[in-house]
């Protein structure tokens, strides 16, 4: 079992005829994901990936024809805000934005609007979702995770892969891996994912990978101590990061004295979370 996506999820890829969109759509198909449609305005009527996936001009038409219930976006940053709104307005209940570099103002509007419409947004600037053996909606390499009982939620990309790989090496499987993304303003937050894992009967423990910037890890700590029964193991990246410098991710910055790794570690530890010293140490803390 899993959260957010499973074998029945019908994925639509927005921006499917772009280089990234096409490559990852093909990777998703190979993994076994039901990629049922693609959308690129102006390319409607084409078929891609050896004629397996039809392309539509609009999300509305793609939905009417295929019944997709999840959209994965590879749309360039300038147009990503509009594409997320298009998906939400067309009735897609789960929108996953992989794109990096979406302006913050666009994200404030999009998140507020999609929240009001009851649409779940994951990302932007995220690797998406993976439910091992069932479905992959995004760019997480499929073979580094096996099905199991650990829920994973992370603000990062390759660091998440590192952790998935460490879990796999230790013989630990995953229910669902949720990449919530490295932007300052994202749709799904740690607290949302933790709630879903707490409610998922097959998830027995959760691994949470945070980093410097913002206060979402502190909010997660509050949530864990008030509302979670399942054990949580965490890793926080950026212990050695200097203040005032943006460390790659738009959201990874210590500013105005807030967002320090040490504060996040302290908050999580006082909520009873085991915090790993390095990503390779996570599996043993789960035992």
């Amino acid at each position: 079992m899993s959260i957010l996506i499973d074998k029945d999820t019908r994925v639509l890829v927005q921006g499917i005829t772009g280089r990234e969109g096409l490559f990852h759509a093909s990777q998703m198909l190979d993994y076994g994901t039901q990629v049922v449609a693609g959308v690129t305005p102006g390319k409607g009527g084409d078929w891609v990936l050896d004629g397996k996936v039809p392309v539509f001009d609009t999300v509305e038409r793609a939905l009417a024809a295929t019944g997709a219930n999840c959209s994965v976006l590879f749309v360039p940053a300038k147009f990503a805000g509009d594409a997320m709104l298009e998906a939400g307005d067309a009735g897609v209940p789960l929108v996953i934005c992989i794109t990096e570099g979406v302006p913050i103002q666009d994200m404030m509007k999009v998140r507020r609007y999609l929240d009001q419409e009851g649409v779940r947004l994951v990302g932007p600037n995220c690797p998406g979702l993976l439910t091992p053996g069932e479905s992959k909606a995004g760019i997480i390499p499929g073979r580094i995770a096996d099905l199991g009982s650990i829920g994973v939620v992370s603000r990062s990309g390759t660091l998440t892969y590192e952790v998935l790989y460490a879990l796999q090496q230790a013989g630990l499987g995953v229910t669902t891996c949720v990449g919530i993304g490295g932007d300052p303003i994202s749709g799904t937050r740690f607290t949302d994912a933790l709630q879903m894992f707490e409610d998922d009967h097959h998830t027995e423990a959760v691994v949470m990978i945070g980093e410097i910037g913002g206060e979402e890890e502190e909010r997660a700590a509050d949530f864990i101590s008030s509302s979670m029964t399942k054990p949580v193991v965490a890793f926080i990246a950026g212990q050695s990061a200097p203040p005032g410098k943006r460390m790659g991710h738009a959201g990874a910055i210590i500013e105005a004295g807030s967002g320090k790794a040490a504060d996040k570690v302290a908050a999580l530890q006082s909520a009873g979370v085991s915090v790993a010293e390095n990503p390779e140490a996570i599996p043993e803390l789960l035992n």
Partner: peptide, 24 residues
Amino acid sequence: VNGAGLAMATMDVIKGLGGEPANF
């Protein structure tokens, strides 16, 4: 390093073991 989170984690591990990273 490839990836921002992993790059931070790599610096952290170096620093944690007594080394001094020159850059991110």
